[in-house]
Nucleic acid binder design. Structure first.
Lengths: 343, 343
DNA sequence: CTGAAAGCGCTAACAG
DNA sequence: CTGTTAGCGCTTTCAG
C-alpha cells in the first residue's frame, strides 16, 4: 500500500512534480505535448491523486456530511440515496452519520464532521430543539436542514409544504363524499405535525365540516404506535368514514388494527397517509397518501448547500416544495347524505 | 470559518505547538498540570483538531468506504445503519457510495474512495463478476465483501449461510405437513440464488419429496418481478401447497398476484421468503421468512476489516453466519395425505 | 511553458 | 517534561 505519489511520477517523467500537478489539474500553462506524455505515465504507473493532501492545501474536502436520525428509516434512506447520487455528480462525497434520535449524539457527530473539515452539512434534525442546541456548531460550517424550522432562526432549510399536504388530503376526501373525517396521530411536540394539523383544521373550516383529532402522545410515529392508538380508537365509539393519518407509518398501524376489528379498508373506512414511504406502494398495503417529493428535496438541499459553500454570506434560504396526492387503493368514494355522488 | 489551529492555541498557552499536540493526544510525556491548562485553553478557544492534517501525517484517515448498489434498498440500509453505528464506536466514519447496480460505476466509486485514502472498504458487490473486475483495486486497500464469492478468489467476506437457509425453510414447510413445495424465483446467474437453490434441492432429496423450481430470468428479485412471475404461475396449472421464495421481495410480489387470483395465503398456499427485510414484518404482510442476521453481519464485517487494516497480510477470512427462521403468518400447517398432523 | 520553494495543520523523532 | 524540526503529498506563487 505504498501509494505512488506525484514525485514518483515526476521522476519517471523527468519533470518537476509541479509540472505533473499542472498536467493533472488541467492547468492551461502547460504544453499539450508534455501534458499528454505525463498523463500517459500517470496511467501506466497507476497513479491515484491523494485527495487528503489536496484537501490540506485547498482547504476544501469536497465532502458533505449527512446527519440523520437513522439511515434505515425508509424516508431517510430514500432521501440519502438521491443526495448521494446528486452530490457525487457535483463532485462531492457523502459522510453519513446516524444521530439515533439522540440530541446529544447529534451534537457529537456534528462536531466530528466539523473536525473532518467537511465543506458543508445536510441534516434532518432530531427535533425542533436541534436548531437551537446546534447554533454554535452550525455557525461554523454551511448547513442545510431538511425539515421546517418554526423558531424563525436564520437557517437554511428545505421542507415539504406540510400544511398544504393535509389540506389537500382533506379536500380530496371531501370530494369523495366524506364529511366525517378524523385526523389521526397528531404528535403534539412536532413542528411538522403542528403544520399538518393546521392544514387539516383550515380545510375543515373552509369546507364547513366538523374537525375531530386523535392525538399521539408517544414520541414517534411508528406503525406500532399507530396500531396502539387505533386499537383504542376502534374499541371506542367511532363513526368517521375517513381517516387522515399524520404519517404513512401510523396509517399502516391503523390497517392492522382495522383488520383485527373487522373494519374493512376502504370498505368501512377510507384511509390516507402522509409521506409516501416506499412501503406504502407495496401491493398488500397500497396506501393512498400525500407524497413528499424526495428527489426534488434532495437536489434542492444539495444545491442550496453548494450555493452556501460558494457564498457563505448569502442570505438564508428556505425552500418549501409542494406535496402531491398519490391515489392508491385505501380510499373510496361514498354517497354522502346530501346526495352528493362522486366517482 | 478561519479555523483556529494548534499554533493559535500554543501561542495563547505560551508553549510550543508540539506540547499542545501532546496534551491532546493523551501522550504520557507531559505534565498533568500543563495538560489540564492546555486542554482548558483549547476548550475556551473552541479548538477543533483538523483530522485532515492528522490523516496526512498519520497516513490513516479512520474512514471506511461503503459501496452498495442502492442505499434505499431495505436490506442494505439496515446493514448500513448497523455498520455506521458500530464503526463509529470503533473510531471510524463512513463514506457511502451507491454503485446503482452498475459494475462500471462500482469501479469508479471504488477508485474514488481509494483516492480519498479510506483505510478500508466494505462492499456489497453488484454481482459475482465484481470480484474479478475489481481485483486490481481490492489489491490496493483492505476490502471486505458482504456476499459470498463462488470463484474461490482470495477475498474476505461475510455472508449468511444461504444453503442452510433454504434447507431449513424446506424442512419447516415439511414439518407443517407440506409435501408439494415449489421453489420460486431462482435467478440463474446469482451466486446467492444458486446456493439457495442447492439448499432446497438437498432438503427435497433428504426428505424424499419431489423438487419443483420456477426460474427467474429477470436481472432483479424485486416485487414487480415476483408479481409478474406469479401471474404466470397462477394462470397455469399448479397444485403446490407451499412456496419457498428466493427473496422476500419476490414473495411480496407473489402475495399481490395471489390476491388477484383469489388465492388465499396461507389458506390455499403457504408462503415463505428469504432475507427478512423490514417490509416483511409489516402487519399487512406478515411474511414468514428466513432471517439474515444483519447486525451480526455488520459488526462481523467491520471487525474483519479493522483486523485486516491492522494486519494486511493476515490470511483471508470467510465468515458464514447462520440464518434463522422467523415465523409469522404466511404459513400454516396442513393435514398431509399420510395422516401426518402437525401443529 | 517549467522549476524551485513555501506552506496547509499536524505528528513524531530528536534534542535539550 | 518541553521545544525544535522535518516532513506527509499536494497546490501555488514567484522566478526563470
Amino acid at each position: 500500500m505504498g501509494m505512488i505519489t506525484l514525485k514518483d511520477v515526476a521522476k519517471v517523467a523527468g519533470v518537476s512534480y509541479a509540472t505533473v500537478s499542472r498536467a493533472l489539474s488541467g492547468s492551461p500553462e502547460i504544453g499539450e505535448d508534455t501534458r499528454k506524455r505525463i498523463l500517459k505515465i500517470c496511467e501506466e504507473m497507476g497513479y491515484t491523486p491523494n485527495s487528503v493532501a489536496r484537501s490540506m492545501v485547498m482547504k476544501r474536502t469536497n465532502i458533505i456530511g449527512l446527519i440523520l436520525a437513522s439511515i434505515d428509516n425508509p424516508f431517510m434512506s430514500e432521501l440519502t440515496n438521491h443526495i448521494e447520487i446528486y452530490a457525487r455528480k457535483c463532485g462531492y462525497n457523502l459522510m453519513v452519520c446516524n444521530s439515533s434520535y439522540d440530541p446529544n449524539l447529534e451534537k457529537e457527530v456534528f462536531s466530528l464532521l466539523l473536525g473532518r473539515q467537511v465543506d458543508g452539512i445536510i441534516m434532518i434534525p432530531v427535533g425542533n430543539e436541534s436548531y437551537d442546541s446546534l447554533k454554535a456548531l452550525t455557525a461554523q460550517v454551511p448547513t442545510v436542514f431538511i425539515s421546517e424550522n418554526m423558531q424563525d432562526l436564520p437557517e437554511n432549510y428545505v421542507a415539504v409544504d406540510n400544511r398544504r399536504g393535509t389540506e389537500s388530503a382533506t379536500e380530496y376526501l371531501y370530494s369523495l363524499g366524506h364529511r366525517k373525517i378524523v385526523y389521526f396521530g397528531c404528535r403534539t411536540h412536532s413542528v411538522t405535525h403542528s403544520l399538518r394539523l393546521e392544514g387539516y383544521l383550515d380545510a375543515c373550516k373552509k369546507l364547513g365540516i366538523a374537525p375531530s383529532v386523535i392525538h399521539n402522545h408517544y414520541s414517534r410515529s411508528s406503525y406500532p404506535v399507530g396500531n396502539l392508538l387505533a386499537e383504542e380508537y376502534f374499541s371506542g365509539p367511532h363513526d368517521h368514514t375517513a381517516m387522515l393519518c399524520a404519517s404513512d407509518a401510523l396509517a399502516i398501524g391503523v390497517m392492522q388494527a382495522a383488520y383485527n376489528h373487522g373494519v374493512s379498508i376502504p370498505g368501512d373506512l377510507s384511509l390516507i397517509g402522509f409521506d409516501n414511504i416506499s412501503f406504502s406502494a407495496l401491493p398488500p398495503i397500497d396506501l393512498t397518501t400525500i407524497n413528499q417529493p424526495k428527489q426534488q428535496m434532495a437536489t434542492e438541499a444539495v444545491d442550496m448547500l453548494l450555493d452556501r459553500i460558494k457564498n457563505p454570506d448569502s442570505p438564508h434560504r428556505r425552500v418549501i416544495v409542494p406535496p402531491t396526492l398519490v391515489e392508491r387503493k385505501s380510499c373510496r368514494p361514498i354517497r354522502a347524505s346530501e346526495e352528493e355522488i362522486h366517482v
